[in-house]
Design a binder for these strands. Structure first.
Lengths: 360, 360
DNA sequence: TTGTACGCGTTATCAA
DNA sequence: TTGATAACGCGTACAA
């Protein structure tokens, strides 16, 4: 057992060749005679030699790994981001070091420490201080995702301005006048931009916006809390007739709360989200939302990190689309189509399009 | 900029001391005179010296990192697992290398490669082959989570048997006779155990179980698909009167689908889950489920990896609890209490109990 | 207290 | 094609 003692030198001695030869064989170099190659391979197989990562990293001055820094880790948004980034990195043979700030104070230090063991770092906007980003950027390439940055080497974001089109749609096309916004603008650059777009649309249409957003987090449970705050309190006449949520999760939580109270969506209250999660097209009514290419956000970021030194383009803003479904009052597009039954019922793990499930 | 050229030796030369002294200062050793200490610190500050991780790892023969291997990454379950593991590892100064199999074929190779750059590895059950686990276990400590294993050094799981109690409750206390099970037993050890417990309860109560489970994944969208399959097809009389879902996510998706179709839960159809996600207590009716200590599963695993060599206990099975709420037909416990409005409305990122939201 | 010298496991350069 | 030998950056006995 234990091959921790099986080093390159040890293999060399055992096979009666030089360390250099073992190194060449180990990495598949062709510059070695078949005879020696076989002899070395035999020893490698037999004793389970595996090149040490630190040795290799030290000699190559390269870690073969990227860092990924998030504020939190929960929810479909981060899951998707994580998946996209991880599979892109894996494709190029790079590993992923994950760091979640958990909104703790020592995050800056952790990030700087992380910088010494990766070749590049992706940092989600709103996670660490600009000072820390700048420090890291002196050592390795840094890309900020979902927000602008002038200290990182590049940043990748999505167009939150589509929320203005969404808001105009609610006001102009559906005649809503009492709109509410659920989200915490101070908590993230994305939500800030969405709240601003929400207000801009009010200005343009000459409608009075609510003085303040309903400041809640971005989890589905926050939507459920919002449902209680909006639906159970205040007279029916004072209730907003449309709620623009900062993301789909809260919108779904809100819808669930409304339906559970016997309210009708969109007749009694219209609801919209942001992201276009898979669930958005599966609920009834379908959730009107803004489609954001979350996975692409992650893969573009990963590619920027791994890109040759030639040049990192700088800024990238990915387009977003308004997706109209039933929850805003529009006719729900071909519902059965959206929910088409999969061809094979046994759509479990073996199915190519099976989503990785929650559990196990 | 760039401090990549600032090595320990370089600092030593610059400060006019020996490399050993710089090393001592760098790690805060007291065995150095205040005078030299200051001189060295000044140079370190000025030029932004940071010890190279590979150098240190090579010398100390320790990576200061753990590997975490999952089948997929989506859903609250994995988010929670990830968070728990990551924060526990961070607490001891260890970094986390993440590997998601995405159900790809080359996972075994990736895992074995990962093994050479971490001090220990946590592997979720059902992710990689036993052979690969055994190979890794020869090099470093391996703990399997959410499933048994006889090749790893230890495993940590939770008690899925409570599903039998849940099923009995539906049959005996609520008089349901036509039960369905949503989940893919072949897809994961946990679901296998839950399906078995579901069937065992039928045997014990002399009730005929369904011949097959409804084989779907574990995402919320699978629940929505299940809703379509169960509710839109077959005559009302053939419809099951209770659905036991393999996890909360599918149960919530199913509930959402039922409510969206104007059905009443639990009057028209009872629904149960597994996990006790936060949403389970927030929906109306509340979701009857089995509480599983997901976070503890992760932290226990992380602790086992970091534990001193003395001894890893071997197997750990964490207890689970039956949580009865309205979705099975029980009276929903103090609903407003569950949804109590937070004291401060601005419960965003700054709030200590704020959940990390989905987005940004 | 400080410095010297070696080892950690690998790759790369240069001769042979 | 093969083999010495020198980095790579740091920790640490050991000596001074």
């Amino acid at each position: 057992m234990g091959n921790s003692r099986v080093t390159l030198r040890w293999v060399a001695e055992k096979a009666g060749v030089s360390p250099a030869t073992v190194s060449r064989v180990s990495r598949g170099s062709t510059q070695v005679s078949p005879e020696l190659r076989d002899r070395v391979l035999r020893v490698i197989e037999e004793h389970g030699y595996r090149p040490s990562h630190f040795g290799r990293a030290l000699a190559e001055k390269r870690h073969g790994a990227f860092g990924l820094v998030f504020p939190g880790l929960s929810g479909p948004y981060f899951s998707e981001l994580l998946q996209g980034f991880e599979s892109e990195a894996l494709a190029t043979g790079d590993q992923v070091l994950l760091l979640s700030s958990h909104y703790r104070a020592d995050t800056d230090a952790k990030v700087i420490d992380l910088a010494s063991r990766v070749d590049g770092m992706a940092i989600h906007a709103g996670t660490v201080s600009d000072a820390a980003i700048a420090t890291v950027a002196e050592q390795i390439r840094v890309v900020v995702m979902a927000g602008e940055s002038d200290v990182a080497h590049a940043w990748v974001g999505t167009d939150n301005g589509t929320v203005a089109a969404l808001t105009r749609h609610l006001i102009v096309d559906h005649g809503h006048r009492r709109l509410a916004f659920v989200g915490h603008p101070e908590g993230s650059p994305d939500v800030t931009a969405r709240w601003e777009a929400f207000r801009a649309a009010h200005r343009e249409t000459g409608t009075a916006p609510p003085p303040d957003p309903i400041r809640l987090g971005l989890a589905q449970s926050d939507g459920a809390i919002a449902a209680r705050m909006i639906l159970d309190e205040g007279a029916a006449g004072e209730r907003p007739d449309a709620v623009v949520c900062a993301n789909d999760e809260t919108a779904l939580g809100l819808m669930l709360g409304a339906l559970g109270r016997g309210l009708r969506v969109p007749e009694d209250i219209a609801v919209t989200g942001f992201d276009d999660l898979q669930m958005a097209g599966l609920v009834r009514p379908g959730l009107t939302t803004v489609r954001q290419p979350v996975r692409e956000l992650a893969t573009v970021t990963a590619r920027l990190l791994g890109a040759p030194l030639d040049e990192v383009d700088g800024d990238t803003v990915l387009a977003t689309d308004l997706v109209l479904r039933g929850s805003c009052g529009c006719p729900d597009p071909a519902d059965p189509g959206t929910l088409r039954r999969p061809d094979g019922m046994a759509a479990g793990l073996s199915s190519p399009d099976a989503r990785d499930g929650g559990d196990t």
